[in-house]
Write a protein that binds this DNA or RNA. Structure first.
Lengths: 228, 228
DNA sequence: AGGCTAGTGACAGTGACTGACAATTGACAA
DNA sequence: TTGTCAATTGTCAGTCACTGTCACTAGCCT
């Protein structure tokens, strides 16, 4: 459990100096996340009670539920940041890029940069282990899929706007996003079963699998394999 | 609430005459499903307690949990049958059909035949309302997505076998299924928001949307729309 | 008829979560 | 510095989903 250095006289530049109250909240929130993820990944999600978490952080259970609306939510705190990073990254793609290329580049780009974002809250490898835990815990997997599908809706709107289409009239944005995210999900699963538990590993797999979307939709699979 | 005709002397042919014990179980199970779905669709899932359900059916709570491992599970009892129908239907497609065509025809075909299957347990329109309720209840939507993804895994294996591929070596089966099912999911959502609450409505929408998978994955969307 | 056992009910207990109210503690003005 | 206000937190009691246990009832089979 790492301790946060508390600046005594000097203040780092950047975010507008938060008040003591705000900083305290931030600290409890981070502590709850870190402890929760540690316990979850060590003993399993179901076998970890909220009481254990709050005892370790020394706050009341009521406080936990003021920060997180459910035990599930705390498990997705970091994951949420990663997804936001992707959406941000997608919004920044140059408009000349076609929708699929934009998504592809956004994912690959965000895999390159999330490392630091994550590390501000928890060690990256704890995040990766959390990801594995989510995939292997039915209750969490379910929530994960729901959150993803919410994000998909947002991404579809973004793409539609980029291309000057109406999401509710033209099905292509939603369909493209659905297909694309389907591949992303498969990638995550395969990565989980594989043996390269690093950010880089997931990045490379992403690249390889996205390349297979076209071939996979060919009318027939027999015949020569392309790539991979 | 429909009553089941209890054959006194005559027995219908078909399934091998079940014992009294078996039939009783079947009846409580069906009653639990029907009552649960009725309450869920009327008052909402969260606002319905398990106690309300078991009181209406006159069994103990303990019995409910012997039939269904959770309150969620009962909400998916019918949905499960529909999915099984699809998988069965897919397994029956002629081997000459390409994987995408096979899935497409299997879905369309099963939408034509599930009507009767469903009706053996609950009125079809109760099923359709249940479907809407699932889509609009976060907790249930989550579970729904998880169950779908389990099914996707099964379908991918089926297709891989059909085509003589190894699912774990070749990513195309999983990717194709993921893309396909993504479209199906979008279709379900759109159907829910639309204004044609019939089995036929969902069938037609399915057909239209599947046709858009190709165009949606084109490098650019600008230019003429093909079809709907 | 009578023993066997699957299925059920009653009961007690756990864990996630919520509402209400009291206690504490930063923030900010006097 | 101090007193007031408002945001946070803790305590407590209660609901609801779900589980283990054990006694009991009722089909089933010889």
């Amino acid at each position: 459990m790492r301790t946060k250095e508390a600046p005594l006289t000097v203040r780092a530049p950047g975010p507008p100096a938060l008040g003591l109250r705000e900083r305290k909240k931030q600290r409890t929130r981070d502590a709850l996340i870190r402890v929760a993820l540690e316990l979850f990944t060590e003993q399993g999600y179901e076998r970890t009670t909220v009481d254990e978490i709050v005892d370790a952080v020394e706050v009341s259970q009521r406080t936990f539920f003021r920060y997180f609306s459910s035990k599930e939510e705390v498990a997705f705190a970091v994951q949420r940041m990663v997804e936001e990073e992707f959406v941000r990254s997608l919004a920044l793609r140059p408009p000349e890029e076609g929708p699929l290329d934009a998504m592809r580049n956004a994912v690959l780009g965000s895999w390159d940069s999330v490392g630091e974002v994550i590390d501000r809250i928890v060690p990256v490898d704890l995040y990766l282990r959390t990801f594995l835990m989510i995939e292997s815990t039915p209750a969490l997997l379910a929530v994960h899929l729901r959150l993803s599908s919410e994000m998909e809706e947002g991404v579809a709107r973004l793409l539609a706007e980029r291309e000057g289409l109406d999401v509710d009239a033209d099905p292509r944005p939603r369909i493209a996003v659905a297909a694309f995210c389907g591949v992303m999900r498969v990638t995550g699963q395969i990565w989980g079963k594989g043996t390269d538990p690093t950010l880089e590993g997931i990045r490379n797999l992403t690249e390889r699998y996205l390349d297979q979307l076209g071939p996979a939709l060919a009318p027939h699979w027999r015949g020569p394999r392309t790539g991979v």
